[in-house]
Amino acid sequence: MRERKNSQNSNGRSSAGKIAQYGLLIALAFIFSYVEALIPLPVPVPGIKLGLANLVNVAGLYTVGAAGTLVVGLLRIVMVGFTFSNPGSMLYALAGGILSLAVMALAKKMDWFEKTGVSILGGVFHNIGQLSMAAWITGTAGVFSYLPVLLVAGVITGGVIGLLGGLVTDRIAPAVRGMRR
């Protein structure tokens, strides 16, 4: 009798399950980005957004890890950039997204905060990354005059996304464990 091979990687997750999981995360992040593009925020400061796609970053960080979440985030930024935006906006999103995820991954790894605190750090550092890119592109540090307002916005939106991301993570964790079998 032939033994059926189950293609699994080193952490026990089947290849098909891993592909399905990443596909789901990318699709959710893309949809959340689209929905967010449809919601105008009545704020006088440019650049403030809800950060709905960051729900996927929080959930991904706690389910597939930092490397997987980085792949999902980069694919989302490129797809959204070409679909709803432009290459210039992609630069800002990449700067904010990479810095944000790096800080969130470090905070999670060091166990400094719970999910909400990690998300707040992500919101704050996303804004710092985008302002840093703007300063580099424009050659002026004047863009940092927006920093106080964007820090407040990052704390508020990061907190909301962190609370929701914690709920989502707790709900999908059993399904993720099931995909690992």
Rank of each mutant, 00 (worst) to 15 (best):
R4Y: 11
N9S: 12
S10R: 05
N11A: 14
R13D: 04
R13T: 09
R13Y: 14
S15A: 05
G17S: 10
Q21S: 13
G23I: 07
F30W: 11
F30N: 12
F32S: 04
F32N: 03
Y34F: 13
E36P: 05
E36M: 03
L38S: 01
I39D: 01
P40G: 09
P42D: 07
L50K: 05
G51K: 00
L52W: 00
L55I: 03
N57Y: 07
N57K: 08
V58S: 08
G60V: 01
L61K: 00
T63I: 05
T69F: 00
V71T: 09
L74C: 14
R76S: 02
I77K: 02
F84H: 06
S85F: 10
N86R: 10
N86I: 12
L91I: 13
G96F: 00
G96W: 00
G96M: 02
L99R: 05
L101V: 03
M104F: 02
A105R: 01
M110R: 15
D111N: 14
S119R: 03
L121G: 07
V124S: 07
F125A: 07
G129F: 00
G129M: 03
A135S: 07
I137H: 06
I137G: 05
V143P: 08
F144C: 07
L147I: 09
P148I: 09
V149S: 12
L150T: 07
L150V: 09
G158A: 10
G162V: 08
R171K: 15
I172W: 00
V176F: 13
M179A: 15
R180D: 15
R181E: 14
